[in-house]
Amino acid sequence: MIAIIDYGINNLDSIKNALDKLSIPAVVTCDATVINQARILVLPGVGAAATGMNNLKMLGLDKLLTSEVRNGKPLLGICLGMQLLMDWSEEGNVHCLGFVDGIVEKFTDKLKVPQIGWNQMQIIDVQSPLLTDIPDTSDFYFVHSYFCNPDDKNVIVGTTIYGQPFCSIMKQDNIVGVQFHPEKSGKIGFQLLQNIINYFLL
């Protein structure tokens, strides 16, 4: 069972719908017992980092996620959910969960912000099990104004160029983060989602 973390932000059902289509059992929940029993956690999210962190804290989910992840439970962060895995975000100067060392930065004002649309992912870690059957420069759907800049470049699985290259997919042990929305990226996105789940279940 996968627990999709419900922390009072919108569009949690899109990841649920995608997992349903892949016939992967999942529940949307903020219940500690359910989260504790789940094999995999998914932290989805659109919206502002400060709101996201506040909501997590209010529900006591920051501490719960920390203990689960420290105990080795797999966690997938999507979009804002990926950004919240870092130490700190420039968006509202907020401290995040700190599972991955590094910060979240804003795109320069010279670009159209948010980046909205389909952009290519350049494969960095060619050996990554996450990228089985995912060709280099496949298009994924992005909607964001901020991006993750991890300290340890070895966690970067793939990058995308928007004004500059940024980390669009990262992996650190039991943690995976994707800046794009695999659940909204057509067939290739579903393939990636399946790969991530397969990796977590190994």
């Binding site: 059902d13 899109s14 719908n17 759907y141 929305h181 057509g186 067939k187």
Partner: peptide, 8 residues
């Protein structure tokens, strides 16, 4: 629609 389509 949300259940059927794979794009935004």
């Amino acid at each position: 629609t949300a259940k059927e389509v794979t794009i935004p």
